[in-house]
Each structure stands twice: as C-alpha cells, then as structure tokens.
Simulated scan of single mutants.
Amino acid sequence: MIEHKQPHLSNMELWRQWKEDGILQAKKNLIEQYLPLVEFVTNRLAIGLPKNVSKDDLYSHGIMGLIDAIEKFDYRRGLQFETYASWRIRGSIIDGLRQGDWVPRSIREKAKRIEDAYQKLEQKYMRSVTDKEMSEYLEVSETEFNQMIQDIAVTSVCSIDDPIREEESETRLSLLIDDKAKNPEYKVNKFFLKETLAKAIERLTEKERTVVSLFYFDDLSLSEIAEVMSLSPSRISQLHSKAILRLRGSLNRFKVQLFVDQ
C-alpha cells in the first residue's frame, strides 16, 4: 500500500528514543517517515469532495492526526502503527471538515432523511429494501431518489467514520480496542457492534458489498472500482452512498439500543 523509508522493525529504536528518552529528534524522524501515510489517507478522503475543499487543508489536518497518533501509540504492544495511525489521521481530517462545515445543511438533511428511511424500512422488512420501496416511502420518484443519492455522495465517504456517540471519539469502524482493558461492558458492546456491522453488511446488495469491500478493505479508489466492476464512476459513487446509508441506519439502531440498555 505504502512504502516507507525503513522496515517497521527498524523503527523500534526511534520509538524507544521518543517514548522512553523523550528525544524530540526521534519524534521528528518518525513524523517524517510516516508522512506518506498522511498523503495516502488524504488522497482517499479527497475522492468525491467538492472542488472548494483544499487538499492542502486536508493534508494539514492529517499531519495533526499523525502527530497525535505518534504521541499516543504504545510501540511495546507490537501492534502495526500504520493501522492505528490511519484512523487517527482520518479522524483528524474529518474533524477539520466538520469544523469547516463544507456540506450545505440541505444536503445533510437529505442524507439524514434517507438514512432514517433505510433504518425504518429495513427494520420493518428485515432485509435490504429496494429503490422502489425507498422512493414510495419518501414519496418521490425513483429518478428523484437516485438524484438525492447522487447529491449526498460527497458526504458518504466520511460518514462511516462518525463516532458511535456524538460525545466520544471512537469511530464505528476503528474498533482499535485495547485488549488489555478489563472493562467487560466495553468488550460486550464491542462484540455486539461487530455483530451488528457484519449483519448490516450481509443485507447490502451484492454490488454494494463489493464496493464496500474494494474501497475499505482493498484500498481501491472509486475510479479504480469503476474499472473493476465495469460501471461508471457516478454509479459506483451511488452504490457506495447507498451502502453507507444502510450501514448507518443499522449502526444507529445499535446506538439506540446501547442507550436503552444503560
């Protein structure tokens, strides 16, 4: 995915110097070494964003996320820093986007309306609902529904990284849980969150599952997925948006259940 200047194991001395001796030069070297990771995450998140969103701004937010990751990472646990840092970088960029409020309120309201519709209908029918059923529920034509999906496509790349609860920083897909933690309630919630997400993915259409898999697990861009699936980039964008809205609906039900049980 990304080539670094040195293999992962060769970084151990830098990590030791920074974490145990507090040598700032070691921290600086780590930041410089992992800057390509910031560029990679920035390029992925920039897909589909409006032209008025500066990639330089995204990159700056990403660097702050990288620094935060380097400050909080525990190298002694033997975990892969790239995985941990990617979510920190992504979260920092998304926080920056939220602060800039780059998405019009009308688009946010439209996305929320569709998300709620997916949540209610799929809970009612216990299956993936069709565009026709969604259109009838929303009282719009299928053409209008597809246009609504297209309009909110620019918001869905980030939506899967929304926090599980608004006041917390843990994201729906991060799940980078400290296995040494002894809080049983947290582990139970983690288990049911994974189970809920797995079931939600199973309810996606075959094409939607393919897009989600290629984008989030195989690190392909939307344009690359379009080539693989022999579809237009706009169609891939629509499939991605629908998948994310379905997943958000399912995960929101999980969030509501958490509050009910507490």
Rank of each mutant, 00 (worst) to 15 (best):
L258G: 05
R203C: 00
L251D: 12
D178R: 10
S223V: 15
I67N: 00
M12D: 09
D219N: 14
G91C: 12
D95E: 15
I225H: 08
I93W: 06
M148D: 10
M126V: 12
F81Y: 14
P50T: 11
A181S: 14
S135L: 04
R165Y: 10
W18F: 11
Y118N: 07
M134P: 00
Q119R: 09
D101C: 02
G100M: 02
F215N: 04
Y216M: 13
D56T: 11
S221Y: 12
K19Y: 08
I23Y: 06
Q99A: 09
I244F: 07
L220P: 02
L251F: 13
I94D: 05
I31M: 02
G78S: 02
V154Y: 13
D95W: 12
S10I: 02
S141F: 03
A26L: 05
S159L: 11
L9E: 11
S159F: 08
A153Y: 07
E206F: 04
A111T: 11
G65E: 15
Y186E: 02
W15P: 01
K182M: 09
L79Y: 08
D179L: 13
T171F: 14
H61T: 07
G22I: 01
I164S: 13
D218M: 07
Q123S: 13
Q17L: 11
V53A: 15
E109N: 03
S232G: 08
R88C: 03
D131I: 04
Q6G: 05
L175F: 12
P50W: 11
S10G: 01
M64W: 05
V260M: 15
Y34R: 04
I93Y: 09
R246P: 02
M12N: 06
E170C: 14
I63T: 07
I23P: 02
L239V: 10
V53D: 14
Y125L: 10
M134C: 00
L49W: 03
K120V: 10
R113I: 07
F73W: 03
R203Q: 00
I107S: 01
K255V: 12
I23T: 06
V228H: 00
E144W: 00
K5N: 14
S92H: 11
S54Y: 14
K132F: 11
S237Y: 08
F259Q: 03
F145K: 00
L176N: 15
E20L: 14
F254V: 08
V211R: 09
G62H: 15
F81I: 09
L193H: 08
N29Y: 08
F254P: 06
E167F: 14
I177R: 05
V157D: 13
E195Q: 12
Y137L: 02
V41G: 06
T205W: 05
L239E: 12
L49V: 03
D116Q: 10
V41Y: 01
S174Y: 07
I149C: 03
C158W: 03
V140C: 07
S174A: 13
N11F: 00
A153R: 12
G96N: 04
D74C: 11
E115S: 13
E168N: 12
D131Y: 03
T143K: 15
D56K: 06
D57V: 09
Q257M: 13
I149E: 01
R16H: 04
Y137Q: 07
S135C: 04
D68F: 11
P104R: 06
F217A: 04
L97F: 05
E185K: 00
K55G: 13
K199Q: 09
F215S: 09
D261W: 00
